[in-house]
Simulated assay, not measured.
Amino acid sequence: MIEANLSKLKSGIIGEQRLFRMLESYRNHFPYKVVKDVSLDAGGKFQIDCMILTPKLIFILESKNIGGKLYFEKNPERLVRVKENGETSVLESPEIQVERNVALFNWWLEQQGLKIPVVGAFVFTSSTPPLILKGPERVTSLFPKSIFYYLHQKWNEYNDREQCLSKGDIDKLSKIIQIECKKNRFEQYPLRKSWNLDTVQIVNGVRCLKCSRIGMARLYGKWQCPACNHSDKDSHIPTLQEWFIFNKDQITNAECRDYLMITDRHLAKRLLKHENLLEFFSYKSTYYKWKW
């Protein structure tokens, strides 16, 4: 059961990381701010994978890292997945999840005295896209490469609407959301103790966000995947985030070298100099923590 829950959680994190990296590669012509991993309370806690704040509307995007054959069933609403090996599983409908989060976030905005349109969609982030044999009817479903078109299409639909938020308002709302997220975070990291993960081996190596294989090599200032040949200079950041989620709440230079499978302590020090990592000094050593 622990291994199954761990695999499910890791799969979700990998999907979210793929979504975030895709959004980082976009440059929209309208002002916007991306807020990740949102946890809020509107009479009940709810979690949103990704939120995009703009002057005229707010986008909610949910990542779904699932493959196989998919059937969106009705009455009752559910998602039926059939894997390549024939194994069938029943999941909560992403339509219900998106609609619930849009409603709860609208309620949360009302509590802040704000009124702005909110639209939602879910994104299939699996490295192997699913085959959708019976699709959703009410909520937009996307593949990563169609996100850019979807955002611009929706923005154009609201082109004649009055601006609800200035750039300063967007920055202020983003800060309020981030403060509230710290109060309402769902999981207490790291999960090793609460999930009894001492019995589960933490696999060392940098994970490829394209094919999910662990074991990227550091070559010429970038990480190179030996399986799919994908290269990226920052692939170690999502891998380090997994360390803080599953293993420990801090990491040293030596632990970083062992975990990322590198030998150069100077390289490890450079890799740990990142906006998502905080540096701390003690009498005996220097260590780093994730900035949640």
Score class of each variant (00 low, 15 high):
I2W: 13
E3A: 11
I13V: 14
G15T: 06
G15P: 04
M22H: 11
L23I: 06
S25K: 12
Y26A: 12
Y26C: 14
R27T: 11
Y32G: 04
K36P: 00
L40W: 03
A42S: 08
G44R: 13
G44Q: 12
G44K: 14
K45I: 07
F46W: 02
Q47C: 03
C50P: 03
T54A: 04
P55M: 13
L57N: 02
I58Q: 12
I58E: 07
L61W: 06
E62C: 07
E62Q: 09
K69I: 11
Y71K: 06
Y71M: 09
P76C: 07
E77N: 07
E77A: 08
L79R: 08
N85E: 11
G86S: 12
E87P: 09
S89I: 15
S89K: 15
S93P: 05
E95L: 12
R100F: 07
N101R: 05
A103L: 09
A103D: 01
F105H: 00
N106P: 01
V119A: 00
F124N: 02
T125K: 07
T128E: 14
L131A: 08
L133R: 13
V139R: 01
V139L: 03
S141V: 12
K145I: 09
K145D: 14
S146T: 15
F148A: 14
L151N: 07
Q153R: 15
E157D: 07
Y158E: 11
N159S: 14
R161V: 04
E162W: 03
K172E: 09
S174C: 14
I177V: 06
I179G: 00
K183V: 08
K183C: 05
E187S: 08
P190Q: 10
R192A: 05
S194D: 06
W195V: 10
V200F: 13
V206N: 03
R207I: 08
L209G: 14
L209I: 14
L209S: 14
K210G: 04
S212R: 13
M216G: 05
A217W: 14
R218L: 03
G221N: 01
C225R: 12
P226Y: 07
C228G: 02
N229R: 14
S231W: 15
K233Y: 11
D234C: 03
I237G: 04
E242C: 09
F246D: 04
Q250L: 11
I251V: 12
T252P: 06
T252Y: 06
N253R: 08
R257M: 02
D258K: 03
L260C: 00
M261I: 10
I262E: 01
T263S: 09
R265L: 01
L267S: 00
K269R: 11
K269E: 02
L271R: 00
L271C: 01
H274L: 03
F281C: 04
S282C: 08
Y283L: 14
Y283V: 13
Y283I: 10
W290I: 07
K291A: 04
